[in-house]
Design a protein around this nucleic acid. Sequence first.
DNA 1: AGCGCTTTCGTAAGCGCTTTCGGCTACTGT
DNA 2: ACAGTAGCCGAAAGCGCTTACGAAAGCGCT
Lengths: 342, 342
Amino acid sequence: MAQDRPTPRLQDVAEAAGVSIATASRSLSRTSGVSEEVAERVRDLARQMGYVANVHARSLAGGPSRSVGLVVHEIGDPYFAEIASGVLGVGDLEGLTVQICHTGRDPERELTQLRTLIANRVGAIIIAGSGFVDPAMQTTAREELHAYQRAGGRVAVIGRHHLGVDAVLPSNTEGATAVATHLLDLGHRRIAVATGSRQLTTVADRLEGVWAAFRAAGLDVDGVPLVEAEFTRAGGKAAAEEILDTHPEVTAVLALNDDMAIGILSVLRARGVAVPGQVSVTGFDDVAVAGDLSPSLTTVRLPMAHMGEQALLMALKEPSARPRRRHAPYELVVRDSTAAPA
Amino acid sequence: MAQDRPTPRLQDVAEAAGVSIATASRSLSRTSGVSEEVAERVRDLARQMGYVANVHARSLAGGPSRSVGLVVHEIGDPYFAEIASGVLGVGDLEGLTVQICHTGRDPERELTQLRTLIANRVGAIIIAGSGFVDPAMQTTAREELHAYQRAGGRVAVIGRHHLGVDAVLPSNTEGATAVATHLLDLGHRRIAVATGSRQLTTVADRLEGVWAAFRAAGLDVDGVPLVEAEFTRAGGKAAAEEILDTHPEVTAVLALNDDMAIGILSVLRARGVAVPGQVSVTGFDDVAVAGDLSPSLTTVRLPMAHMGEQALLMALKEPSARPRRRHAPYELVVRDSTAAPA
DNA sequence: AGCGCTTTCGTAAGCGCTTTCGGCTACTGT
DNA sequence: ACAGTAGCCGAAAGCGCTTACGAAAGCGCT
């Protein structure tokens, strides 16, 4: 007789069905070697009794892992929240539970979180968010991850490519070239660039795209006002203040993500600078709110949720011997924050 | 000697330290009965070797659970993303891993997710997001949850109070009264209200606060234009169109969350309606972007991340016999989207 | 009937950890 | 000097499950 436990155990089901727990286990995990008649009986009973397998026991015993880990810089950030949404979506479909960790952009924390995930025996790990330019910051995680893979773990990253694993890559460089070209085509020549920490590979990649466009247009890249600040709205505000104070001649500000662009828009409005009348502003990412700002933001759309989905699917399906790279498309979204210079 | 495993086991640490696994376990879990000298040595070694306990083994062996489950409507939504951020924050501090599920506002899915969480033996469950007015939609989850609690699980909810468990409650009604009063004080009398589904308790609570303020001002509540749409930016747009078309006389729109307000702002701008010149708009929640919109949004600030923290802390600390309710403070944030009617 | 095969099922060995229990050592008090 | 006691530590018993492995039973064949 089943005790008054919170949940019935496999043994309770087995006893009720009059079979051994081995048979019960096989019936439920649909392994062959059980007559369909017995298996059916066990499954019925299990459903009736509300049996749900104990994941810990199952995982310990070496069964397939039913969970995945997602590592993001900061879940409160819409960029990552949308990626998470994509990952959760396919997780649900595949019957996987998702464990989310955030690192606060701290490589140290990232390593700790990775270790925890691995120790928790998740079946797959998705790492989202920019890596760091300095390769020294990556070495340890890399080894850790490869050991994990050798042990059968699946790994995919989103937005970085220094880890030697499957990657979904947003078109950072191409997108940046596109948005810079858009500004150039409108006739802007005095363009300021607002960037996050250049230690982030995302920033490096986007910057490269911007320079490429500028050079193609014959601009002196060294003369471009470049302001580095935090990759946030607050950083955008700080950058805007600095640009306005030290380079009043600029006719456009190219921000390397939407968050900064939103902060810039806010400062411009507060200072009475018309957008796009006096200054054009562009962002990057196309977070959900970008289209509903006033003025709505010209930016580069990255399919965040889709990238989350792709990454998990990529990790789950039979992994190739060598790391694959899947490039996510970008789309230049021209809205109301850009116009020809006055 | 440690094998080439993905992660060292407790046994590996114990061997390295020259003690039994029992002693190693005690040292790491800070149980008494080990000399400080030995314990220190074990802990050092563990850190050096990058040892992280296997949660499955620990949980199976009856140790305290080191994981919590978080159920939200939609993680891509900034409101929930910020709550999640708070939960992850204290989770990190307490050394807990966080499993996130999203329900898409579907009570059915919610129940499934709850069951999964319980089967996964998480130590605590946090449910964020509005409940449903219809009590029939709650019954099953309620029983499920109570059984879980009897088995030692901790539960706390954010923003609902129909489940008979600890709750962190945003000041929906009071906040709504405050923002409505603000509009009234400015002199508005023809105010439209844009709401999400009235099946959501959050909507019901906020509506109640609005009516209270309106009645106090002597308004005929039944005559107020009320538009129900989705609780999203798209819903806000739809609501705005409808209000503009059918009630051109309104001088203010009171939206029951920021998302809708942002959509409304967007439509108003597109239609060339000046805010706050011709129409004032208010939101609710104060999502991060609200202050950087143009015009910046007058709204009611709810401490989302803080509520996430509180809920988890509440669940973790010794639970009282009867469910407690902690009210989170609200703050009326007056910005540029409201002004006296023309 | 006896042989080898396949199919079906039970026995038992763990997975890595926590915790009880008992043994050992080093004290204390008389 | 010796029992009594307290402090440390190791051996071992599981937690609930999966999965070799082996036994039993049924089959067709010679």
